[in-house]
């Protein structure tokens, strides 16, 4: 997260977008983008690791695909037909919460920038 010193620097770079009283600068967007990218790609690695582990286990782990654990359910069948969805729901829910929180941080950062800009203008920049 950018400090107030960083946000002040951002306003003087000249690259900013303003809608009404709300401002994005390239530096503030870049800072949050990096965190958004970290979040998305971390979740992406978890998603692909789990998703590709299923066929990997199907190929190489007999206890996964051949041994029934509940009635006719093998671990493989149980995971693909039921538990995988619980994984998808949990992953997407926690991701959305964190992504929304990041948006809020960008919002606060932008407000700080707007306030700093107002001070600079008032001070005869």
């Amino acid at each position: 997260m950018a400090s107030s010193a960083q946000t002040t620097a951002a306003t003087v770079s000249g690259v900013q977008v303003q809608h009404g009283t709300h401002i994005d600068t390239i530096e503030s967007v870049d800072a949050v983008f990096r965190e958004q990218r970290k979040l998305s790609f971390t979740y992406g690695v978890i998603f692909f690791a789990v998703t590709l582990a299923i066929p990997a286990f199907s190929v190489w782990w007999e206890g996964w695909y051949a041994n029934p654990v509940w009635g006719g359910f093998t671990l493989n069948y149980l995971f693909v037909s039921l538990l995988y969805y619980v994984f998808l729901w949990g992953l997407s829910y926690t991701y959305i919460k964190k992504a929304d929180a990041l948006d809020e941080r960008l919002s606060h950062m932008a407000d700080e920038i707007a306030a700093a800009t107002a001070v600079n203008v008032a001070g005869g920049e």
């Binding site: 900013q16 977008v17 809608h19 390239i26 967007v29």
Partner: peptide, 20 residues
Amino acid sequence: VDEIWMRIHGTAHERHEREM
């Protein structure tokens, strides 16, 4: 490219819409 980048990842427009 910086403006485009801010259009994809920035939220000023959304915050403005939320305020309005």
